[in-house]
Nucleic acid binder design. Structure first.
Lengths: 190, 190
DNA sequence: TTCATTTTGTGATTTTTATCACAGGTCACT
DNA sequence: AGTGACCTGTGATAAAAATCACAAAATGAA
């Protein structure tokens, strides 16, 4: 059995699982190695899994008339999926791609649902994970209502500096809802 | 026992509960009637509950240097809370206020956590509810990355017309991340 | 290293949006 | 009906951001 320490510890950080439940959960996953540029999900496919990023990062983006709009960057120790596609079994409107050489653990949708039924502990883990994801998503959504573009940049710089260190400015621009050139200028003037 | 039909049906729409679990869950709630303007949560308080809106609507807002910024409007059949404050037991950075005469059902944090431990079915309901909330939140967050202000208005008009019918333009402006005057002008020119 | 590709910086210009100021309208309450 | 509080529309102006065009720099692969 392929028990990964990092994954196990991260799961424990989200919810305390008994050794049995932890084993069960980890046994259901499968590691995947992605080269930079490889896709986990392509627009139009039905999303069948949830992924945990062990190393590297993933980019979630939408295609808007040929222009790519990045809605999420998922780094180490984060979970990512297209929840709408996963839940409703409908084609995904977005794609998920590796931004670096990336290692993920794949949690298959069907297996996960089975585990939820089998183990209340694992269901509890799922709930806690979702609470965590929702909390972060809400906070991020508020950036756009509370801050101006320059303030969004400042906030990101202060609270999520890894984004700037690892993601190109061109890709960050759409994530911040501003033009690439504007972001370049904002960065110059502190 | 105060079993409300609307609430029961809405819960069933989220997750199939056995009659016993449903009874348990509903027995843990308490109805609250709010006049327009009354608060469920005031900035600085620790959020202790999750609320289900039966009638009316709630407004979630932040105070930014004396200016109110609305981040959410919760209408009939929706659940709302301040998840960060609820989870981390820290003072809330936002307030939640009734925008009309509003009836809510209050789910106390402690009772809910107890129920999660007691009943796998109820935990499953919690997970499903969170998935649903996260899905909606992600979609809303994408408005700001994918659409221009005018397009955000159009999207809201098409997909969430009740917002325009029941929330004042002044309050919607910050929710759409634009100035009140700009929204007024966008509305004129279709 | 070299070459091609991608990324970034920058100026000029246009477009969009915010801000300020104020008038008229609506609504609830007495 | 009158009063005050809030909401909406609109013009003038300033500020911010988008867009276009292109050069410089960085990156990566052969």
């Amino acid at each position: 059995m392929n028990q990964d320490r990092v994954l196990a510890n991260q799961i424990r950080a989200i919810a305390n699982l008994s050794p049995e439940a932890l084993t069960l959960l980890i046994a259901s996953t499968q590691p995947k190695l992605l080269k930079k540029g490889q896709f986990l999900l392509i627009e139009g496919q039905v999303c069948q899994a949830l992924w945990y990023v062990e190393k590297g990062y993933l980019r979630t983006f939408y295609d808007r008339d040929g222009r790519e709009i990045n809605t999420r960057f998922s780094f180490e120790n984060n979970f990512v999926t297209d929840l709408r596609s996963l839940r409703t079994a409908t084609p995904s409107a977005c794609s998920i791609q590796a931004g670096e050489t990336t290692t993920v653990w794949e949690f298959d949708r069907g297996k996960l649902l089975d585990l939820y039924r089998q183990s209340a502990e694992i269901e509890s883990f799922g709930r806690n994970l979702l609470e965590h994801m929702l909390m972060e998503q809400e906070e991020h959504a508020n950036w756009f209502k509370v801050y101006s573009p320059a303030e969004r940049y400042q906030f990101m710089l202060r609270h999520h500096p890894h984004l700037l260190q690892r993601v190109s400015l061109s890709q960050l621009a759409s994530y911040l809802g501003i033009a690439r050139e504007t972001l370049s200028r904002i960065r110059k003037n502190p």
